[in-house]
């Protein structure tokens, strides 16, 4: 089986982002960029399935600017076999990303697509579910365990109040949650080898997808702040403060 893993280049999760003063967005110039953490988990899961003999080839794909090649090289250094970059300098919404990915799936015919449950920049949590809808495939979102079988996959999902296990027919969409695995680091020799792995370049137009946004961003602003309160010296003082404030 072939596994397709879409990855997104986002602001590194350790960076404290800054909102532009003019309200037009978030400052992205000279900011460290990395692979979306949930996508790292997706790449890792695909690698583990391959290592377990359940998959033969792992193809990673990114839709984004020319620099997203770095993100794809990271995935190749982790162990993916080849990469596709659908290059666009525009910001592409989840619905359009899903439409492009549908085109990639039709060209590549994977038995499984593993995506991160959400990207940590726009926090939409939509692309996997949308891709499943467009392909008319089953979906297993927020996975914390994935067992690939013959013609189906058993997936344990993180839901409110605990876990749900479902069986989904293949081909299918799986989106990853935090506890699925701990992604590996790429070793230096593998980073060198990744530079020679094949990387195809495409454009959204190759898939006939219009990426014009459907959501018009009117403004981006800082969240309302919360002021620090007081330090209390003891448990007794804490309890009496809470009582005075009418909380207890």
């Amino acid at each position: 089986m072939k596994i397709l893993v879409p990855v997104k280049r986002v602001v590194d999760y350790n960076v404290k982002i800054r909102v532009k003063a003019d309200g037009t967005g978030v400052e992205l110039a000279n900011v460290k960029m990395s692979m979306n953490p949930f996508d790292e988990i997706s790449v890792e899961e695909a690698l583990r399935q391959k290592e377990a003999g359940k998959a033969e080839e792992i193809v990673v794909v990114s839709i984004g600017p020319a620099k997203a090649e770095e993100t794809l090289r990271t995935a190749l250094a982790m162990g993916a076999d080849r990469a596709i970059l659908v290059e666009t300098e525009d910001s592409v919404e989840p619905l359009a990303v899903a439409k492009i990915l549908k085109g990639v799936v039709e060209a590549e015919n994977p038995g499984l697509v593993i995506l991160g449950k959400q990207a940590i920049d726009d926090d939409s949590n939509q692309t996997g579910q949308m891709l499943a809808a467009l392909l008319k495939w089953g979906q297993a979102t927020f996975a914390s365990k994935l067992e690939l079988g013959e013609g189906s996959a058993k997936v344990t999902r993180e839901v409110d109040g605990g876990l749900q296990t479902i069986e989904v027919k293949l081909p299918a969409i799986v989106t990853t949650d935090l506890r699925l695995n701990e992604p590996r680091y790429a070793s230096l020799p593998n980073i060198m080898k990744a530079k020679k792995k094949p990387l195809d370049k495409k454009a959204p137009a190759d898939f006939g997808v219009d990426t014009a946004p459907r959501l018009k961003v009117l403004k981006t602003e800082e969240p309302g702040g919360r002021k620090a309160g007081i330090k209390v010296g003891s448990v007794a003082e804490l309890v009496s403060s809470l009582k005075t404030a009418g909380i207890l």
Partner: peptide, 23 residues
């Protein structure tokens, strides 16, 4: 935006060719 609605609503949106507004 519960786990169950986060699972189903984007699927609905894509079937209707609508870009969802999340959370």
């Amino acid at each position: 935006a519960t786990a169950s609605a986060k699972n189903v609503m984007p699927r609905v949106a894509a079937l209707l060719d609508v870009m969802q507004v999340s959370e």
